[in-house]
């Protein structure tokens, strides 16, 4: 399953807008400038997802998942390197922390950061495409990439392919590196592409 150049172009632009909103939310939260790279978009068979993401994430990750439902449904993830996760927690916590395993406050801070960033991104999707997206409670996972991938949920859809959107963002001189990944099943992907084509047509008319 491949996207045409026009579809990829329109989708990249939409996602760029949505991820920029997410970066702005992170910047507002931390008080630091957040750099964001152009998102990369690809369609992969689900079984290849592990090897694809391994190119970007090699270590243990802190990831916040938020399952979303509606006309477009899937699983959105914010993944942070562990060092970056600790820096974000320090920026947003009042109290002194030790650098050991994440305590309850640290987990709470990361979960809320994920909630705000993922909502900013997916909410912008909903606004631009004029569809309503409902969000589940965000869940934090602290584990290896393969264990994290086992937790992926994409509703009841046939899990053959997934649209994977990944982008990196950084703040504090790249000490905090994050990846946002949105995984959609085939039916949602089809609906999303149609909606994006309509949106692109309105934008260019």
């Amino acid at each position: 399953m491949n996207l045409s150049n026009e579809q990829k172009d329109a989708l990249t632009e939409l996602i760029n807008i949505a991820f920029s909103r997410a970066a702005a939310a992170l910047s507002d939260l931390t008080g630091h400038r957040v750099g964001i790279n152009v998102p990369e978009i690809a369609v992969h068979p689900i079984r290849e997802l592990g090897s694809i993401l391994e190119r970007f994430v090699r270590e243990e990750v802190a990831s916040v998942h938020q399952i979303f439902s509606g006309p477009v449904a899937g699983d959105a993830m914010l993944m942070l390197n562990r060092e970056g996760a600790n820096i974000l927690i320090d920026l947003l916590s009042d109290e002194e922390r030790n650098k050991g395993p994440l305590d309850e406050t640290g987990q709470e801070v990361l979960t809320e950061i994920g909630n705000i960033i993922l909502n900013a991104c997916l909410g912008m999707f909903g606004n631009l495409l004029k569809v309503h997206v409902s969000f589940s409670v965000p869940v934090l996972h602290l584990e290896s990439l393969s264990a994290m991938l086992d937790t992926l949920v994409i509703g009841q859809e046939e899990l053959r392919y997934a649209l994977v959107i990944y982008t990196t963002f950084n703040l504090k001189g790249s000490a905090v590196t994050g990846y946002m990944v949105i995984v959609l099943g085939v039916a949602s992907l089809d609906r999303l592409i149609r909606a994006v084509e309509d949106w692109a047509q309105i934008q260019s008319s």
Binding site: A25, D28, L29, N115, I116, N119, G123, G126, N127, H132
Partner: peptide, 23 residues
């Protein structure tokens, strides 16, 4: 944190006086 216009419409219809966004 939900910035969707449709969510604003939903909560206003349910009786909320206002909606503000996080952060």
């Amino acid at each position: 944190a939900d910035i969707q216009s449709s969510t604003r419409a939903l909560v206003e219809a349910a009786g909320a006086k206002n909606m503000i966004n996080k952060p």
